[in-house]
């Protein structure tokens, strides 16, 4: 590093500052309009408690399912070369860039009562996913799973294959290597991926309202409660918005070491 550092060009710093303002301003708006003094009362209203409980259940379930399905997929994508791997990765990326309402519509045509697979679920098991908490979990998992898969895949990739090879030469089969060598080493990636998946799941709105409907106690999670409250009772909406912002901040603080770029 040299002693005198040139000033960064204005052409870059001005847009950079604008970008920060654009991102921070809505949060400032939320925090200044939030009804701080009545927050305890608003957040203990039955409807608010119900929505928080449901969100916790739905987001936790989506995170667990994401772990069960996402860790294996992340490992496969990182370690198993196969034809169509690029295609699979695109499929994993789609929910990240697809508007959630489109995701919900797609889920409806796949798993709805008259959907491709949903029809069979109804005929064979009498299982109807829309308008059920299970449907809300499916919608949340659809949007949350990619975060876990991509984080775990990156975690596995960054492991030198030496450890696994050594274990294999010592006679362990691939499953044993995965369980006793890979899994402990990617634990930090799994935690990070699970936290991101949880944060995405608890904020899920579009796919849920489209696919699972909007019923208190069954499918009306925090974002749906905010959407419903906004027109009738903006203070409740703001109070619940503060809760979701707090959840997001907790996740980001917990992941701060991993999110910090190289300095």
């Amino acid at each position: 590093m040299t002693a005198h550092r040139a000033r960064p060009p204005l052409a870059l710093t001005v847009p950079a500052v604008l970008a920060v303002i654009l991102l921070a301003l809505p949060l400032v708006g939320l925090l200044t309009r939030a009804p701080w003094s009545s927050l305890p009362r608003l957040l203990t209203e039955p409807a608010a408690l119900e929505a928080m409980r449901l969100s916790l259940v739905v987001a936790s379930a989506a995170t667990v399912i994401s772990l069960l399905l996402g860790v294996p997929l992340g490992w496969v994508l990182a370690r198993v070369p196969f034809r169509g791997r690029g295609l699979v990765r695109v499929v994993v990326f789609v929910p990240l860039v697809l508007p959630p309402v489109v995701g919900g519509t797609a889920l409806l045509f796949a798993l709805g009562r008259r959907g491709l697979v949903g029809r069979l679920l109804d005929d064979w098991f009498g299982l109807v996913l829309p308008f059920s908490t299970a449907g809300a979990v499916v919608a949340a998992t659809f949007v949350a799973l990619p975060f876990l898969v991509l984080t775990v895949e990156a975690g596995v990739r960054s492991l030198p294959e030496d450890y696994e090879e050594v274990a294999r030469t010592l006679g362990a089969d691939r499953w044993a290597v995965f369980r006793h060598v890979t899994l402990p080493l990617i634990a930090p990636s799994m935690v990070a991926g699970a936290a991101l998946a949880f944060a995405r799941a608890i904020g899920e709105f579009g796919a849920t309202v489209t696919f699972a409907g909007n019923l208190p106690g069954r499918t009306r999670t925090l974002p749906l409660e905010i959407f419903t409250a906004l027109e009738q009772d903006p203070d409740t909406a703001l109070a619940l918005g503060v809760v979701l912002l707090a959840v997001a901040l907790v996740v980001l603080v917990a992941l701060r070491d991993r999110l910090r770029g190289p300095t």
């Binding site: 990240l96 860039v97 508007p99 959630p100 309402v101 949007v143 990619p146 975060f147 991509l150 984080t151 895949e153 990156a154 975690g155 990739r157 960054s158 492991l159 030198p160 080493l185 990617i186 930090p188 990636s189 990070a192 991926g193 991101l196 944060a199 995405r200 904020g203 709105f205 579009g206 980001l252 992941l255 991993r258 999110l259 910090r260 770029g261 190289p262």
Partner: peptide
């Protein structure tokens, strides 16, 4: 040696924030 995967996690975080609504 500690494995690190900052860029994908940051990327995922960006997408997380992006997954809002449309207007």
């Amino acid at each position: 040696m500690r494995p690190s995967s900052s860029p994908p996690v940051a990327l995922a975080a960006v997408a997380l924030a992006f997954a809002g609504g449309v207007g």
